[in-house]
Design a protein around this nucleic acid. Structure first.
Lengths: 418, 418
DNA sequence: CGCTGTTGATTCACGTTGTCAAGCAATCTG
DNA sequence: CAGATTGCTTGACAACGTGAATCAACAGCG
């Protein structure tokens, strides 16, 4: 039983965007050694190869401290020294890199009837990926599917089990990462299922479970657009609408892990009914089925596939275009509410719905500019990043890697290494 | 020129709710001495008289450290020792208290045509308060009014100027506390006015400016309902609708200080027009003028005062009651959006509009329960706290006190005190 | 080819800080 | 007036980051 108890706590180290580097004051460093180890590791991981001196600049530590901190990280194989690169006068820098091959994790995204899984290394580079369908949505059935998935992935990749940090699982709904419980998953029809424990016991590996949008946010924070921002919001559009928040370098989960339920914000009390029982939820206006339904209503015949609406819109069909414009307005309105409430410096738009972003991004941006209070819209960068399912699964792996590595890094505290 | 440059930074110390007290692990303390001084001070300030041992428990520090940290705080007059209280076996505890009379601050709330000001001590106990009208809304005119207000307040209270930490000013709109600029104030018709500098130069005192709802949040965090929560949201209803967020013990201001603009969330795209140019903003549905307007429409004659609608509703008038019910539903919907997005453990409802909370709180709570996703509503305490203008001004004073004291506490670092 | 300048990495003594363990202090109980 | 009990204080100690000095490894140049 290798259950991963302090999963959520291990993630409490500040993310890359939150690194110091302000270079003010008498360089009085604050924080524990464990924090410094984590910051250093993250700096090297996300800012590519970095010399000790540059790492010192990025983290705000002194060069002397970096040397001392790096030493055990090298002897324990977390970091490796690259070949020196000369060219400029002076002693050449020794580029430090994360030993990407040293740690791997399995990342899994659970979807409706389908699972996507990847094996990723520490750079979140995908080693292999696999996709399979499943039909038994009972906890046991899902655990079976996960076991099968992990088996396939690991047989395909020559990853030593000792180098496998564990399994990260992302799924929609209310997931409490701290307790490892799936509190409520409309997708699977679950309530209070201890999924982390179930999978950990079956696989005898550390397991982390997390809301799927959160896993994507972790991935973006470490390796994506969020790496240079301390805070950002990630909004995903697809079958549902999701949202994850990274505030001051930390994933914001809320008291009970239910933060980020953006899709059921009511944007129009007289709007179409939502599967949650209300009317005019954002999801019921801009989700995949909503797009199809709106198009059906417009043309007077039943359309079930979004892809159809997309191609018609691309062909210039005014009805189809209007459907997307409306969705863009609604989405813009909801994101404006988010901007006005939290005033983040960055919003990333993702999810499979974003592959057709050209059809509504203009309406979205216009609405954003209209609805935003004061400078909340102009002070915010809005990025569109359509990402495939594999990236989500990679995010789940990244979440596991992050927890696992930062945790094992903590074990280095107190060891001065002769 | 005693401008208070690092005002916002001084507030970055974690608030009372965020204190450790988890008592897990090998008691390895994390953080700088300055942080510990701040945490200790806050613990004693907000948790009332506290013995060293209890303070150690609350902050998570060792008893030895508390003794060492407390010593300079006593010699410098921040804390005082109370008389011992015996009664139980063992050496009696020595209750520590904040020397409330040692530090004072002026707190000012700017409203439309009116200023409310108070002098408060370190317990945020109001020593004297004053209310006056002003008509010149130019920066110079407002600074004049503030000067007059401060003069009246200080002449009424026998507070030594050396014990006056400074002036805290709260006003609605987009206030950037870090830069000290009023970025945009619809109330005063200002854009980019360096109010902090103007007042600081005139008064030759440290000055802190902050969004008025944020000042109230600071006050609630230190002395009110928020003192036992690490995170909470504060929503105020009155002429406008405001919101402040305390996340993990820190006031969340956003990138440019514009976070918390809750009032212009669109709750009904076909709703009444808002002064901001959009339709159906929350403020345009539940604000004071909106209530009056809705009542006017219902009864077919012009009603301008909310108080009239309130008394009619209390008298049982069905139209008036319906107006409030509708407002409650809209507010509940908006707060549900906040709950779903951030999943906070506590929401405090305040503002003068809350004096009539009995008329709409049931509708609000019902809508909240309906709209909330999963357990976000049940995991959240909703408190109603109608607070008078003086409490807001007190909040402004508390904001100044907090910044000033934590800042001067920082000066104790490195002094071991013989 | 060796000297010098330059810049990165390392070492070491030092100051700061929190903790543990032990001792001291002040009360109650019998 | 002894224990017993509980809170406060002290001192040795270890962990940790830093500054200053030193070492290391290169380029450029005569």
């Amino acid at each position: 039983m290798t259950e991963f108890v302090a999963a959520a706590d291990a993630g409490s180290l500040k993310g890359p965007g939150a690194l110091a580097a302000d270079a003010s004051g008498p360089a009085r460093s604050v924080g524990s050694r464990e924090q410094h180890l984590g910051a250093l590791f993250e700096a090297v991981l996300t800012r590519g190869p970095l010399s000790r001196r540059d790492a010192a600049r990025v983290t705000g530590l002194s060069a002397a401290s970096v040397t001392k901190l790096v030493k055990p990280m090298i002897t324990h194989g977390y970091l490796v020294e690259n070949l020196r690169e000369a060219g400029v006068p002076g002693r050449p820098q020794i580029p430090l890199q994360v030993d990407a091959g040293r740690h791997h994790a399995v990342g899994i995204k659970l979807m409706e009837g389908e699972i996507v899984g990847v094996v990723a290394d520490l750079h979140a580079e995908i080693q292999s990926s696999h996709r399979m369908r499943y039909s038994d949505t009972s906890p046991a059935g899902v655990v079976d599917a996960i076991e099968e998935m992990a088996g396939v992935l690991l047989s395909r990749t020559a990853v030593d089990r000792s180098r496998l940090l564990g399994i990260g699982i992302g799924l929609g709904g209310h997931v409490n990462a701290t307790t490892g419980m799936v509190v409520h998953s409309p997708l699977l029809g679950w309530r209070d299922v201890p999924l982390r424990r179930l999978v950990a016991e079956r696989m005898n590996l550390p397991v982390v479970i997390e809301n799927d949008v959160n896993t994507l946010a972790v991935s973006e924070q470490w390796f994506g657009a969020g790496s240079s921002f301390a805070s950002f919001a990630l909004v995903t559009i697809g079958i549902g609408v999701g949202c994850a928040l990274v505030l001051d370098g930390q994933l914001w989960r809320g008291v009970s892990g239910a933060a980020g339920e953006f899709g059921h914000m009511v944007v129009d009390p007289d709007g179409p009914p939502c599967h949650c029982g209300k009317r005019g939820c954002l999801e019921a206006v801009v989700g995949d089925t909503a797009i199809a339904a709106a198009m059906s209503a417009a043309v007077g015949r039943r359309i079930t596939k979004v892809s159809q609406v997309v191609s018609q819109a691309h062909a210039g069909d005014p009805d189809a275009r209007a459907v997307f414009t409306q969705a863009g307005v609604a989405l813009g309105r909801a994101i404006a509410a988010l901007l006005n409430l939290l005033n983040p410096p960055l919003v990333i738009l993702s999810g499979e719905g974003m592959t057709a972003s050209d059809l509504f991004i203009d309406a979205l941006r216009a609405e954003l500019a209209r609805d935003a209070f004061s400078s909340t819209a102009t002070d915010c960068t809005v990025l569109v990043r359509p990402l495939p399912d594999e990236t989500w699964a990679r995010g789940a792996a990244a979440t596991m890697l992050r927890h696992g590595v930062l945790r094992s890094l903590g074990a280095l505290t107190g060891q001065v290494e002769a």
